[in-house]
């Protein structure tokens, strides 16, 4: 089980790093997907080798669906941002501050 957990942890850290360093908005969203999938692997691993049982499997199914929904909304917002700013660089989103 530890191997699975390690993979999940690596995915999680990669996802966070991706979110924090990518300047492209779409890239940031991909980072989010990585984080969520890291958690999913955890759930499935705990379900298979731990005590969590079927709950874990169901959890990850829900998360997959939710991730799709969230990505849809996020992409729509990113598109809207592009329409207004003609760029998708998140560093350009710095008018609101202080």
């Amino acid at each position: 089980m530890n191997a699975y957990l390690a993979v999940a942890a690596v995915l999680f850290v990669c996802g966070v790093m991706c979110m924090a360093t990518k300047r492209n908005g779409i890239g940031v969203l991909m980072g989010v997907e990585l984080v969520l999938n890291g958690a999913n692997i955890n759930f499935v691993a705990f379900s298979k080798y731990g005590l969590l049982g079927l709950d874990g499997q169901i959890f990850s199914l829900f998360v997959i669906v939710l991730a799709a929904a969230e990505a849809a909304v996020a992409l729509a917002i990113a598109l809207n941002f592009y329409n207004n700013h003609l760029t998708i660089d998140v560093d350009q989103a710095s008018e609101l501050k202080n």
């Binding site: 989010v32 996020a74 700013h85």
Partner: peptide, 23 residues
């Protein structure tokens, strides 16, 4: 649009962290 972009990305990040914690 800028506010929403910040909100959605921050929110998604927080949700990811939370989900990992839940797992």
């Amino acid at each position: 649009s800028e506010a929403a972009l910040k909100y959605v990305i921050y929110g998604a990040g927080a949700a990811g962290v939370m989900l990992y914690g839940l797992s």
